[in-house]
Design a protein around this nucleic acid. Structure first.
Lengths: 293, 293
DNA sequence: AGGAGCTATAGATCATGTCTATGAATAATT
DNA sequence: AATTATTCATAGACATGATCTATAGCTCCT
């Protein structure tokens, strides 16, 4: 296995393509003797003449033509590769794969995603939703570039940046207008029907723990599976929803919902943006990260 | 247009393929720092990380994987090219294109062609027949590697090697047995029906000139278009054939034909093997030339 | 804690690619 | 026919840059 210096093939390519060692030299910003020497090296290594030299340049011998048919392809591929890398660098292509919960996508990331997409329409966006442990698995398997979940995350393989702070709260609609401005105790609150996000969500666990630690048991009247439904049901007056305040900021502003304040401090949750420690980010991911931070 | 040193891609290929800079270094007979440095150059040139370094080697980033998909192809092509060149050198493949007359192919080149083909069955043989000027044109157009014709050839672009000497003569079959061993004059010969090769052949022109220079006119009783027919008709007794002696050596030996001797010196023709001056020969052609010479 | 992997970094070295200068051949000028 | 302008080849000097040695840092495993 001899294996020539690949650089020689670049010289050969241009010599063959231009039909002139002099022109090849100019193309490659070399001198003509350098090109002459490079071609000679190739010819010596193969023991075969690649060009016939005539008075107005060079032309390929049959063997040279055979070689060229391979090298041309090869050269084109490298050219494409270099173009592609430039594209990736300029964020004209590539992809950005983010894992998280649908509600975080919608209520937290959406504006960033929109801006990013506007600026880099060539980047394919992929949003993968799942639970926090699922997201972590995806990240470790290399299926996503970023994970966006609620803190705390403790995993030595992960590097976690802090995102927005989420403050959970109870909200109600006009049906319970009498509670507006009041400060309720847990007991008082528990007399109303409560709407909670279902299952294994971190927010749900946090609020249950909070009530338990005060000797109460928070049992929902209604359990739903989406943040949108939490909002909708609260507006319709079916109960008091436990929800992340940032997700209902619009409704709170326009007055279709108001916060039901408790006399205990509500838990604060950090959004964490996870990446794999020591694994380089893609261009797209690092650009996107810069925007969130 | 920046254009990296292609040699870097060779290093990148092996680093990606082996998943280890150390292994790549061993493959390339380099040291690990050299490989590390080469990869760094590539990464700097693209402004993108190509590998993530972990404790047991390296693995491609998405950008690195993109690059690899191109470089792998490119590398494979160069590998194929180098294999192909080795094949051409070893005469395991390639082609040999010879121009000439059918009779020269059959009666002069055939044994060489057979031997060459036996030894190098991978070489595709191509025989192109035509008149001398046609052969010369083919040669200059690069459609054949060698031309085999009768001398003299005068063309500054051509390099001519001498091949076998051809001595033309008249031959007859048993029908004219009385002429065997005799020395005829031109007048005497002209009383017999003469069989000549037709038209614009060089041999025909030579013999006509010979007779003209002695004040005679050689008019054929029969004109044929192939050497085989010249032989066949003479054997069948339809006349006396003018033919190249080397083409009927078998018949002369076995006695089915005998030479009709004239009292004038018969012209001698050299076979010339033409190649283009200053144009390198293919491996196959130069090997073949060595055998003829 | 120690060892055995791995890669990164710094700096010295030296080989290799590149240059200059020149020659030789051919073709187009004059 | 002599001149000029191309082309590529060759030789030798030079310097760039690839490669090496030595070392450090990190992670994993015993």
């Amino acid at each position: 296995m001899s294996m020539n210096n690949f650089e020689l093939y670049k010289v050969f390519y241009w010599a063959a393509k231009t039909g002139s060692l002099t022109k090849a030299a100019k193309t490659l910003f070399l001198t003509q003797p350098s090109v002459s020497h490079a071609i000679k090296q190739l010819e010596d290594s193969f023991g075969v003449a690649l060009f016939s030299r005539n008075s107005k340049g060079v032309s390929l011998t049959p063997e040279g033509a055979t070689l060229y048919s391979y090298i041309e392809q090869s050269h084109i591929l490298i050219g494409l590769a270099e173009e592609k890398m430039a594209e990736l660098k300029k964020l004209d292509s590539g992809e950005l794969r983010i894992g998280g919960s649908d509600s975080l996508f919608k209520h937290y990331l959406l504006p960033y995603l929109e801006a990013f997409h506007d600026e880099h329409p060539g980047i394919k966006l992929q949003l993968i939703h799942g639970t926090t442990p699922e997201i972590i698995t995806f990240l470790k398997e290399g299926r996503i570039d970023l994970g966006v979940v609620r803190m705390p995350i403790v995993d030595p393989q992960l590097e976690v940046r802090e995102g927005i702070q989420l403050r959970d709260c109870f909200v109600a609609g006009s049906r319970y207008a009498e509670l507006k401005g009041q400060l309720l105790s847990m007991e008082q609150l528990l007399e109303y029907p409560i709407i909670l996000f279902s299952r294994n969500s971190r927010a749900r666990k946090a609020v249950n723990d909070l009530f338990n630690s005060h000797g109460h048991d928070l049992k929902p009247g209604i359990e739903v599976g989406s943040v949108d439904l939490l909002i909708e049901l609260a507006r319709k007056g079916l109960g008091i929803s436990f929800i992340t305040r940032e997700f209902v900021s619009r409704e709170l502003e326009e007055g279709s919902l108001f916060e039901v304040k408790l006399d205990v401090k509500m838990p604060v949750a950090q959004v964490g943006i996870m990446t794999l420690r020591n694994i380089p980010l893609t261009q797209a991911a690092s650009e996107f990260l810069g925007r969130i931070g």
